[in-house]
């Protein structure tokens, strides 16, 4: 009441600030000091920029630390060097081991290839000797025409033996390939060779040294003269530079014998 009165009186008494309403009954709103000025914005921007720089520097340092030795102390560097050296010697050892291994494997492979080659050569030789492969080479062809008397199987076998002694490698009689088990047997008008009947003329083909083969037949008192004199047969020898012996034998099947590994 008094207050109203006072205000009333003040309003009536002082005319000049007639419209000044007393605001004492209302808490005065604290005036905001945040006047957005240019310098404020600039400050904000500077703070923002500085924080950005700090963050970036932190990240860059974080990235940098993984690749840089500059920040390491001497002890750490020495330790690092030691570790690297140790690792290096380890790797060297490993490398030596591996190269040794490689070498041994290579030499083993070489050896195996060598063995394979020898084996193949042997196989070819054996096959030629066993008569399972056709063969070609220089040699002689001996044609024997039966004369007055029947030529004995033993004489023909002698001729084969002579040829073998002279180093004949492959022999064929008519159409029979001569091998280690070849036999001759007398029949009434010819010979039986390995189950096939042969008649005159007997054609022997032998691969080997031509001179030696010719000499072995023509030698004085040899099988050639015996054929001519004893049996009245004609013996002609032709040297051939590329004699082809194409007759082959099937490899023999062994029933009892087995190779020793």
């Amino acid at each position: 009441m008094a207050r109203e009165h006072h205000s009333y009186t003040s309003r009536t008494k002082s005319a000049s600030p007639a419209d000044s309403t007393p605001t004492g009954s209302f808490p005065k709103v604290k005036s905001s000091s945040r006047h957005i000025t240019f310098s404020h914005i600039a400050m904000r921007l500077v703070v923002c920029l500085l924080c950005a720089v700090v963050g970036m520097a932190a990240i860059i340092q974080h990235k940098n630390i993984q690749s840089s030795y500059a920040s390491l102390s001497e002890n750490e560097l020495v330790r690092l060097l030691d570790e690297t050296n140790q690792q290096m010697s380890l790797l060297e050892n490993q490398k030596t081991q591996l190269s040794n291994q490689l070498e041994s494997i290579q030499s083993a492979a070489d050896q195996r290839a060598q063995l394979q080659k020898i084996e193949n050569e042997n196989k070819t030789t054996q096959d030629i000797l066993a008569g399972t492969l056709p063969a070609t080479g220089p040699g002689v062809r001996i044609t024997i025409r039966q004369g007055s008397s029947h030529i004995d199987a033993g004489t023909l076998f002698n001729l084969i033996e002579e040829l073998r002694n002279a180093g004949a490698e492959v022999i064929q009689v008519n159409n029979v390939r001569v091998v280690t088990s070849t036999y001759f047997e007398n029949t009434h008008d010819g010979v039986d060779c390995d189950g096939s009947e042969l008649h005159s003329p007997y054609v022997f083909q032998a691969i080997g040294d031509q001179e030696a083969l010719t000499n072995s037949i023509n030698i004085a008192g040899g099988v050639g003269s015996r054929l001519r004199v004893q049996y009245g047969a004609s013996v002609s020898i032709e040297k051939k530079d590329a004699l082809k012996i194409t007759k082959i034998r099937q490899p023999k099947k062994f029933t009892y014998a087995q190779p020793i590994e």
Binding site: C48, G55, M56, I59
Partner: peptide, 16 residues
């Protein structure tokens, strides 16, 4: 607020 935004910007920039 400006500081936090600045930090984030800086970290992202440093990453890229």
């Amino acid at each position: 607020m400006a500081a936090v935004i600045g930090l984030i910007i800086g970290i992202v920039a440093g990453l890229f």
